[in-house]
Design a binder for these strands. Structure first.
Lengths: 147, 147
DNA sequence: TTTATTAGTTAAGCGGCCTGAACTATATCC
DNA sequence: GGATATAGTTCAGGCCGCTTAACTAATAAA
């Protein structure tokens, strides 16, 4: 049994460092792309799961349908997402990333990735291997719990 | 030598999952606290390093001094940060978290921490130990590169 | 088939955050 | 000591994203 105190502390320290960096990078990404928090949120959401509707996006973001519709519309006009009629329910729309949108949001993720790669550069192969194993575990476990 | 492809892939997958979660939690935190992106940014910054000035905060956020001053003022009025005159340069102000502010931002970090703890619950002690070692390495390495 | 519900859009208005400019006060340089 | 620079504040104005409300169109229910 691991000492719970240490476990919690390590995770908290790591969260702090990671969150600080995340916010900094996120702001930079917003500046570079000219996109709002919500717009980036929508792109991330669609990267994970496409073919969602406008209302679904809205509730995901915690805003009204109207706001979601407007945000979506802006992204469509920018050519970042595609909005097509759902053939099975012609009231509904299916949203999906365009190649351009996918490239953009993946570039944002890559900034984060390269940061991690950068800070692991100086480590030994054994340490790097351990980090890979740990991150793989975490990713798998996270995927299992998120729905 | 590790296969670079795998290394990059693992980190990218992990980044994607965690960024998605981060954004979701962040939005919730904004709603709950009623604070803006910039305001939370300032609190995080002050958690990491107190006694910074208003301009420093502004450049950290990529906004003008005027905007930084306004954001700081709101946080002061909310009782989340403290703004005192720098005795060595009476033009400057020293900013620091109040206990209330510290508690608030630490609660935000704790959400992230508990999430990680939650997803590692089902793992074996060996796996948990490996994750702890890996996160410790990452935290240390990250601290070494940021200044 | 008439009624009610659901998905999405549009328009008007509001509030928040940001900027530029003008200002105060302190510090530094010659 | 006088000119210049620096730290911060205040104000007016603009932009952007959100909300409410009214609307269209399509589906489900009666």
């Amino acid at each position: 049994m691991l000492p719970t105190i240490v476990f919690t502390d390590v995770i908290r320290e790591w969260s702090e460092v990671f969150m600080q960096r995340s916010m900094h990078d996120f702001r930079k990404f917003m500046e570079e792309t000219g996109l709002s928090f919500s717009q980036i949120n929508i792109l991330m959401r669609l990267l994970h799961r496409g073919n969602t509707g406008v209302s679904e996006v809205g509730s995901q973001l915690g805003v009204t349908n109207a706001a979601a519709s407007q945000a979506v519309d802006r992204l469509v006009q920018l050519g970042l997402i595609e909005r097509t009629e759902d053939p099975e329910d012609r009231r509904a729309k299916k949203l999906a990333l365009t190649p351009k949108g996918r490239t953009l949001i993946e570039k944002g993720i890559e900034v984060r990735s390269r940061w991690v790669e950068g800070i692991t550069d100086a480590l030994t192969p054994e340490q790097q291997g351990m980090i890979i194993s740990a991150l793989t575990l975490l990713t798998t476990a996270a995927r299992a719990t998120r729905e």
